[in-house]
Design a protein around this nucleic acid. Sequence first.
DNA 1: AGCACGCCGACT
DNA 2: GTCGGCGTGCTC
Length: 686
Amino acid sequence: MSPEEPPAAEQLALIRTTARKAKPRTWRGAQLAEGLPVARVLVDKGLLHLDQFFDYAVPAAMDADAQPGVRVRVRFGARVVKGHREGGTLHDGFIVERRTESDYAGPLAPLAQVLSPEVVLTPALLTLCRQVADRYAGALADVVQLAVPPRMARAEKDASPEPLPAPAPPEPGTWSRYATGPAYLQALARGDTPRAVWLALPGPHWPAELARAVAATLASGRGALAVLPDGRSVARADAALTELLGEGRHVMLTADAGPEERYRRWLAVSRGAVRAVVGTRAAMFAPVADLGLVALWDDGDSSHAEPHAPQPHARDVLLLRAAEERTAFLLGGLTGTVEGAQLVDSGWALPLAAAREQVRAAAPLIRTVGDADQARDAAARAARLPSLAWQVTRDALARGPVLVQVPRRGYVPRLACDTCRAAARCAACAGPLELRERGGTPSCGWCGRPAADWHCQECGGFKLRAQVVGARRTAEELGRAFPRVPVRTSGRDTVLPSVGAAPALVIATPGAEPVAEGPGYAAALLLDGWALLNRPDLRAAEEALRRWAAAAALVRPAGEGGTVLVLAEPTLRPVQALVRWDPAGHAVRELAERAELRFPPVSRMASVSGPAAAVAELLALARLPPGTDQLGPVPAGPAGGERLLLRVPPGSGAALAAALKSAQVARATRGGGEPVAVRLDPTDIG
DNA sequence: AGCACGCCGACT
DNA sequence: GTCGGCGTGCTC
């Protein structure tokens, strides 16, 4: 043993006598980095509950590579035996900071390994992850896991392409149809940060319009990020961007590229080689340099909600980015959400909508068939489809394809009186009757009571009729009725991106409607009114309108003969909004109703669920903001579980999240037994 | 979360 | 006398 390398125990004793904080003490006699010998590390797994950083000593050999943002491997959870450390498992982590000294009084373990010198958790991305974690009362490590894709060494080896210069500002194109559209583009192009909630006109132009907004932002020398709900819509936006700007100025971040290619593209963004991103949910974290615009398409689509903890929603993440990174904001869709309406209502964003005459020029003719119409219609009783539907289909098939929107499988069929079509209701609680299995006894969807001896309250009839169970079969019947017309189907397993302009019957479930080439569908039949509207969901009306509008927007304008027939009560609010093509008015009314009932998003909510005792303990520990309402608890989940809703007045959402977060930490620290799930702004609260 | 150390019942 | 119950405390 040479004098320069004393035994570890001796070295330890020696180091321990030195003044605290003067130099970090380590457990091995390794030579440390000179300038900043301490690395503050976010350990990927392990102490998720404590949600804190840990300091490690930086060996001199790792000094150059161990920069903030790189992936490292560290030993964690070791214990001290006779003056040296034993055990401890290797964990992945990220260096978040290099420092001269540590706050930690004990001796530091050295970094085990720098996995790669690639800086992936940049300061801006770390700030975003921290904000998202706070917003959702979640752990930073969980959010970082969502934001930074797993390492693919091969993709890291390759150089990213050279960045292209900023393009020229785009022409307004179809943005001219919106009164403030060209002005919005100009503001983006000159480097401003306009914020808008955009109600897109029906028809095929929105991907190109979104692309122009991205291009205008690039023209200002800034980057842009657009998040869309699924691979198909991303592909449309991608195609529009490629047409506008050519290749090389943007990347598409979706799951179907495969992990390595996806990481390659992510790296091109992270390295600043590419300034524009279109992608699905996970792209909301894309580390676009000098971000100038965040755009979200169709924020009512449920796939914008991340299913992994802490379940951040793309809209909220992009709102956080717009504020922190001082960017422009564009929330677009054919219809709106209450959240979008609130952004306008509060004055934070401006509405970007077309005038009435533009709407009339773009929208198809919407016709309705309600229950009363169907009851009067003798032909419908025999054939399960109103005669108007046959007529519309026959006329339209002479001119082009016809879209038939049918409910997705798994919707519980709702029941109605076969004679008068009144909805079948539970005699005890007036809840809707459901047929859970074919040929079984109908039962109440609310209280669960079986309704074996049902009779109609309206007309005394005693025969029940399934409202939507026949929709798929109805579509098949349509196919048989027009034997010379090809039938295409698009649904869960096989989603067609597009169909040709020739006459065809296109059967699709909501969200899987193919785009029709050329002028669009000649007509659409929306057969799923019941399935969409009768769900016990706060968003049922919003969602019904969203799905109908998505299908109707693929139909050619009324002026070119485009017709949409929706099988739903014409008196219902979302049906009227569709008929008048007034999604803005619908969202405003929904928002007003939510405010009146003190429902989210006007009030903010959190759900707390788990074993009853654990929920109660968390609640006792939480210092909830003033004005917090407690709703419940109600039994939820298996074996005595409970769910509690907490509601706070507008403006107290952050305080609610912070209170729940510290209560979670406090409970975990004192060895708090069974876990409690905390969710902010839960989407499924009925 | 793991994974140890720490003080009280049924075994050779 | 010992093996082991899981209570509580720590992890850079």
